[in-house]
């Protein structure tokens, strides 16, 4: 059993120049998996997730000194990770829109050939279904379904009311279900 380092200690040590790097290493070690997997499920590809995750932690390094402790550190990290992922997805979509490569099922092909993806057919279909959701619904689905985040916390991360998040999750689940059903019936 490992003892989890308290955020207050990380923040306190980060403010001291001599212990800044040590504190940052503690922060990355504590949150890297949660941040990475949240990003990875959004962007799907490991290399992309790695780039986005590194950018997120670089932004954390730059902004941590001015971090206001009225919100929790992980809430702030999730917010940065979500925004960075959405920015990345949008930029990738724009690039794909102007690309001459008009592959009809690029994601299916990519997931099947990805050495860091080991899902079966139904997992591929779930990923395709999630990928077809609008960005906000995608984030809500990821946070609720995979991270099992309570609506109260999600509301702080996404700055959206709990009612709106519940409705968003409901729509997202319905869409994913329909997508998977249609694929199973093919």
């Amino acid at each position: 059993m490992t003892l989890e380092i308290h955020d207050d200690l990380i923040l306190q040590q980060f403010r001291e120049t001599a212990t800044r790097e040590k504190a940052f290493t503690m922060l990355v070690t504590k949150y890297q998996q949660r941040v990475y997997w949240h990003i990875r499920r959004m962007v799907l590809d490991h290399d992309d997730a790695n780039d986005v995750a590194q950018n997120v932690f670089i932004k954390v390094w730059k902004g941590l000194e001015n971090f206001r402790e009225d919100s929790q550190l992980y809430t702030w990290l999730y917010r940065i990770a979500t925004n960075e992922s959405i920015t990345f997805i949008n930029s990738k979509k724009r690039k794909a829109a102007i690309s001459i490569d008009k592959d009809k099922n690029p994601l299916t092909r990519k997931l099947k050939s990805d050495p860091y993806f080991e899902g079966d057919e139904i997992q591929i279909n779930i990923q395709l279904a999630i990928d077809s959701l609008p960005n906000k619904q995608k984030v809500v689905f990821e946070l609720r379904y995979y991270d099992e985040m309570p609506y109260e916390e999600m509301s702080r991360v996404l700055k959206t009311s709990e009612g709106a998040l519940k409705a968003s999750f409901h729509h997202a689940v319905k869409k994913v279900e329909e997508f998977v059903k249609s694929k199973l019936n093919q």
């Binding site: 890297q32 990875r40 490991h46 997992q123 279900e177």
Partner: peptide
């Protein structure tokens, strides 16, 4: 969605070996 509720929720993604040891 009973269909999704029945699904075993597993992470289909992997990372390269020692990825998290070197990230920081």
């Amino acid at each position: 969605s009973p269909l999704l509720a029945e699904q075993e929720k597993k992470n289909p993604f992997k990372v390269p070996e020692n990825y998290f040891s070197n990230l920081s």
